[in-house]
């Protein structure tokens, strides 16, 4: 497979599309593609729609939204690092009400599938955001960004504590329509990610998004101070791909049936395929969309080819194929695995 780098304009002369069945599912959300955007790397889809047809990918995962408008952190908010970047945006956003009126309404009118990412500083805030979403509908799934500090508990990050993470999920589950799948987005900055995964699954999530950014920092040698105004920031991009892949693998080992949305450093169809082989049911393309605004569509096309070249007729045949032979799975046939 040669990589069509310039997805749009020139690249939309896309490679011959093979007959691979690209349909995918995340719990009850069915999609024509296993490639989604990543929260905070696509805004609400409108800008990217200029570069590719956003209804053709799996879904738009919107920027995490909180209860009220939020200014985010001071600049500088980003810093380039080897094969990646650090960001400390601080969840700048319009608040759930304006989000529903403007962004969600636009996405609905556009006919795009939408995974709404929500965030909060307290269990209560997550619940209220979920409640507002329920009243309007329009979210095909909810992704709960639990990588936020809990202001009422010494700013401990929800995602780093199995019990706190479970509390958030229970609350969101209770406040949401039972038909809406809920995904918990996990942080790699924990000792045992499978433990957190089990805890939120017990609390009632329908799936897991794996992973959020990894905490990092850079010191500017000119000022000899941290390069980011927020001191530390989230590391993303190809630099974290092996970590993300390892997390997906470990969770798939621990939980053979839970739907997983794999994310972290995906740049090409080959990268996406690695995640699927490791156990992801679908993938999100995040930071690399900054590098190539048509990356999600390009990754979809490249993945179709990469699957076909390896003799897979569909995405679902390849899910968890990297684990074949492992005895935690009930093997359905010759080297094949059925997960759902």
């Amino acid at each position: 497979m040669t990589r069509a780098m310039f997805g749009h304009g020139i690249g939309s002369a896309a490679p011959p599309v093979p007959n691979t069945d690209m349909s995918a599912a995340l719990a009850s959300l069915s999609m024509p593609s296993p490639v989604l955007t990543a929260s905070g790397c696509a805004a609400s889809g409108r800008e990217l729609d200029q570069f590719f047809d956003i209804t053709k990918i799996g879904a738009i995962v919107t920027k995490s939204v909180m209860l009220r408008p939020r200014s985010g952190r001071p600049t500088p908010r980003m810093c380039e690092t080897p094969s990646g970047m650090l960001n400390s945006i601080g969840l700048q956003g319009p608040g759930i009400e304006e989000f529903i009126e403007v962004d969600l309404a636009w996405l609905e009118a556009r006919g795009a599938r939408t995974v709404v990412s929500i965030a909060g500083e307290s269990v209560d805030e997550y619940g209220k955001v979920a409640q507002k979403l329920r009243t309007v509908g329009g979210a095909d799934a909810i992704e709960v960004n639990i990588s936020c500090p809990n202001v009422s508990d010494r700013n401990q990050v929800f995602a780093c504590d199995p019990e706190m993470a479970a509390n958030v999920i229970q609350t969101v589950r209770r406040q949401s329509d039972s038909q809406t799948p809920i995904f918990a987005k996990l942080s790699p900055d924990v000792t045992d990610i499978a433990e957190i995964a089990r805890s939120v699954v017990r609390a009632g999530v329908d799936g897991l998004t794996v992973i959020n950014t990894a905490l990092g920092m850079v010191i500017d040698l000119e000022t000899m101070r941290p390069a980011l105004a927020g001191v530390t920031g989230g590391l993303s991009g190809p630099a974290i791909r092996p970590i993300a892949l390892r997390c997906v693998w470990q969770i798939r080992q621990a939980l053979p049936d839970i739907p997983i949305l794999g994310v972290g450093g995906i740049r090409t169809g080959f990268d996406a395929l690695q995640f699927i082989l490791a156990g992801a049911n679908a993938v999100s393309v995040g930071t690399m969309t900054f590098n190539d605004p048509s990356a999600p569509m390009r990754v979809h096309n490249e993945l179709a080819l990469a699957l076909a070249e390896r003799g897979f007729g569909s995405v679902s045949e390849a899910i968890s194929y990297g684990h074949r032979g492992a005895d935690i799975f009930e093997t359905a046939g010759e080297g094949e695995i059925e997960l759902e």
Binding site: E47, G72, T75, I89, T289, P293
Partner: peptide, 16 residues
């Protein structure tokens, strides 16, 4: 001239 990660409005790094 603010530092920009995406240049197209999707990342929120370039604010003032």
């Amino acid at each position: 001239e603010e530092s920009m990660a995406c240049g197209i409005g999707i990342c929120m790094t370039c604010v003032l």
